[in-house]
Simulated scan of single mutants.
Amino acid sequence: MTTIYYILIAIAVLALIFGIILGFASVKLKVEADPIVDKIDAILPQSQCGQCGYPGCRPYAEAIANGDIITKCVPGGQPTVIKIAELLGVDAPDAEFTEDNTPKVAFIHEDMCIGCTKCIQACPVDAIIGTNKSLHTVIPDLCTGCELCVAPCPTDCIKMIKVEKNIDNWDWKVNPDLVIPVMNTTDGEKKLVVGK
């Protein structure tokens, strides 16, 4: 019975020694991350589609921080380019992500869907719902337009359709220097509302 106690004490001492070594190493060998990379990565859509030429959003964020162009993210589109440009303090270039610069989302023709789940497996943002041997559908609000689900579909039932402009996705270009005259109707007082 005493040998079991000796074994348990030896394991506890070894665990304590290795814990101290790991704690010391984590403090001494800590690598500081670039905060701008973290901020750019938070702006990117995290679809990990690879259309930018990098294996994921984090490597693309690192490349942007090192001087790469900011217009390569197809799923993020122009809104992402504008946010990154504001973060970096540069002018946002116009980027043509599609032939008419309109964002697109996937659409599944449900009468052609055979329920193979290949599109679900290819979707990096889980925008497609459905199960095996039943029809699938796309949740448009989650779809980033990366087109990764189109190629694996054996029946060619997935098409990319344009996102129509509505009040939620309209590009509201407001001049920050805008001056709006306002009149209070109760007391007739006039005042100016200045943007900045």
Rank of each mutant, 00 (worst) to 15 (best):
T2N: 09
T2C: 01
Y6T: 08
I7V: 04
L8Q: 12
V13R: 08
A15H: 06
L16N: 05
I17L: 14
I17V: 14
F18D: 05
I20P: 04
I21C: 06
L22C: 00
A25V: 14
K28A: 08
K28W: 03
K28C: 02
L29W: 09
L29T: 05
K30G: 01
P35D: 15
I36P: 01
I36R: 15
V37A: 06
I40E: 00
I40S: 01
A42K: 10
I43E: 04
I43D: 03
L44A: 06
Q46P: 04
Q46H: 15
Q46W: 10
Q48R: 14
G50S: 08
C52D: 05
Y54W: 14
P55N: 06
A61Y: 00
A63K: 02
A63S: 00
A63N: 00
I64V: 10
D68Y: 03
I69H: 07
T71S: 14
K72N: 10
K72A: 11
V74S: 06
P75V: 00
T80Y: 10
T80D: 10
T80A: 12
T80Q: 11
V81A: 04
V81I: 11
I82S: 13
I82W: 04
K83G: 01
K83I: 02
I84T: 11
A85K: 05
E86A: 12
E86G: 09
L87I: 07
L88A: 10
L88K: 15
V90L: 06
D94M: 13
A95K: 09
A95M: 07
A95Y: 06
E96V: 09
D100F: 07
D100L: 09
N101Q: 14
P103W: 09
A106D: 02
A106N: 00
F107Q: 15
I108Y: 02
H109S: 15
H109T: 15
E110I: 12
E110T: 13
M112Q: 13
I114Q: 14
I114K: 13
G115F: 02
C116S: 11
C116L: 05
T117H: 04
K118F: 11
C119V: 07
I120M: 08
Q121K: 07
A122C: 00
D126L: 00
A127G: 01
I129N: 04
G130L: 01
T131P: 00
T131H: 09
N132F: 12
K133I: 06
S134N: 13
S134W: 05
L135Y: 03
V138P: 05
P140R: 03
G145R: 06
C146L: 02
E147T: 12
E147M: 11
E147R: 07
C149M: 04
V150G: 07
P152G: 03
T155R: 12
T155E: 15
T155D: 14
C157E: 06
E164W: 07
I167C: 00
D168P: 00
D168W: 04
D168C: 02
W170I: 10
W170G: 03
W172G: 03
W172I: 11
K173H: 09
V174A: 11
P176E: 07
D177G: 04
D177H: 02
D177N: 11
L178W: 03
V179A: 09
I180N: 02
P181H: 11
M183P: 02
M183Q: 15
N184M: 05
N184P: 01
N184T: 03
T185E: 14
T186L: 14
D187F: 10
D187H: 13
G188L: 08
G188A: 09
G188W: 08
K190I: 14
K191P: 00
K191L: 13
V194W: 02
G195P: 07
G195M: 12
